[in-house]
Amino acid sequence: MEKARLLNAIIETAIDGIITIDERGIIESLNPAALRLFGYQLEEVIGKNIKVLMPEPDKGAHDGYIHRYQSTGEKRIIGKGREVRGLRKDGSTFPFRLAVSEVQYQERKIFTGFIHDLSREKEAEERLREYAAELEELVEERTKSLKKTVVALREAKEEVSLSLEKEKELNQMKSRFVSMASHEFRTPLSSIQLSASLIEKYAQPFENKHIEKHVSKIKNAVGNLTTILNDFLSLERLEAGRVEPNFSSFDLVKLAEEITEEMQMIAKQDQNIIYQHTGLESTVYLDLNLLKNCMINLIGNAIKYSGEHTFIEFNTEISDEQCVVTIKDNGIGIPDADQVHLFQPFFRAHNTGNIPGTGLGLNIVLRYATLMNGTVHFESNINSGTTFVLSFNK
């Protein structure tokens, strides 16, 4: 009796539904979980054929299953588990996984069905399909937008390069470009970046690698375009004389360590930035923002033009006479014929190939360093790397 009460308690409190029927398909019992799933009271289904809980076509085929089993012993209705649909009292259907076992009890056969509701799983799968479809549509839309933006930027760059020959034409072009960049590029780029971040956030519960891949592509493309746009806007501000150094005392070592950590996050695989400071002092009197921009630009170039599994040396030194910042890589180097033109705006060395860039970064670094009364020196050899040195007198 104790075992019977325990068994009954287990059945009554089971999360999954449990149904028993006889050889004719007549319902003999349902546990509370099964009654909740189908929406019936116990007295409404006891003694009725199991077909009352089946939608078509399973309902029409059920008698055939029973007949074949009784006449041939076919085991199709017995199984470890299969996905079927149930019919609720209100006429709605729901998916569930059904496992059926045959029990010999008091010289007769009883079939026990174990029902696991799949509604939530199916809803989640449907939402995932919808998210994937929306993502594909968004990726296609954003890709078209990015292509148009890249084409527009390329055309703008070519137009600026040609207009540099005449000062009057350059001024006119700068005004047009700054207006276009501010209004036509920044807003859609911010929208694309935000949309990509939201998609990544909403898709996290589903752990879909395809979603992560496409979101990463969008973010990388936006990052490249934003860098190009920032370079153009920085050049325009310099040309217009709107950049003035704001000298202040700050901790150079702290700034360099923060930049090292920031740039390490965007470095290539197994590409390590090694920072070292020389000297007892760590405080300098320069423009923090301009110096930070110079460091980030030079380290970014080192990352971009060096391969994976390489080291980038980042050194700072403060002596009694001067402050020196050194960035050294083991990258592709700069051809001798190109070195004389290296700091000209829009100039790029001939061995850069398909590596993205505007040709403005080093020109901006030189002009920022000059504003702080500093100098820029470099040494480079093909396939042996490049060293840039920023020097500032105290």
Rank of each mutant, 00 (worst) to 15 (best):
F94Q: 10
G39T: 10
E317H: 08
E102H: 05
G333E: 05
L298R: 00
L286G: 02
F250T: 03
L135A: 11
R348I: 11
K75M: 10
I78M: 09
E165D: 03
V325F: 03
R97L: 15
G25V: 04
K201C: 00
Y202T: 05
V215W: 03
L233W: 04
E2S: 13
I19K: 02
E136F: 15
K268N: 09
G17K: 01
P335Q: 05
I10E: 01
H210Q: 12
A369G: 04
E43Q: 14
S197W: 05
I11L: 15
I46M: 10
E258P: 11
S384E: 15
R85I: 01
N208T: 02
D90S: 09
L170K: 05
N393R: 11
K328E: 05
V253H: 05
S163N: 04
T310G: 02
V178T: 12
F311W: 07
L342Q: 03
K219T: 15
A124I: 13
A369C: 06
K268R: 14
E207Y: 00
E159L: 13
M372R: 10
L42N: 09
E165R: 12
I21D: 01
S101M: 10
P205K: 00
Y69Q: 11
L98E: 07
K59P: 01
D117F: 01
N220R: 15
I312H: 02
L238S: 07
N383V: 03
R82W: 12
G47H: 06
T375V: 09
H67D: 09
A9S: 15
N171P: 00
G60M: 00
L35R: 03
K292H: 01
A181N: 11
F177M: 15
E136K: 13
E261L: 14
L164V: 01
I19W: 02
Y65K: 09
T93P: 05
L170M: 09
N230H: 09
I18P: 03
G241F: 13
E134S: 13
S380P: 09
P188F: 04
R348K: 14
M372S: 08
E136V: 10
E165S: 10
I334E: 04
E126F: 09
K157R: 13
S92Q: 14
D336V: 08
E43N: 14
Q276L: 13
V150T: 12
K209T: 13
T72L: 07
N220P: 03
A152G: 11
E130M: 11
G374E: 05
S119K: 08
R237L: 15
S119P: 08
R154A: 13
L153E: 02
L42F: 09
V284N: 00
V365E: 04
N393G: 09
E44S: 03
I274D: 05
K201S: 01
D336M: 07
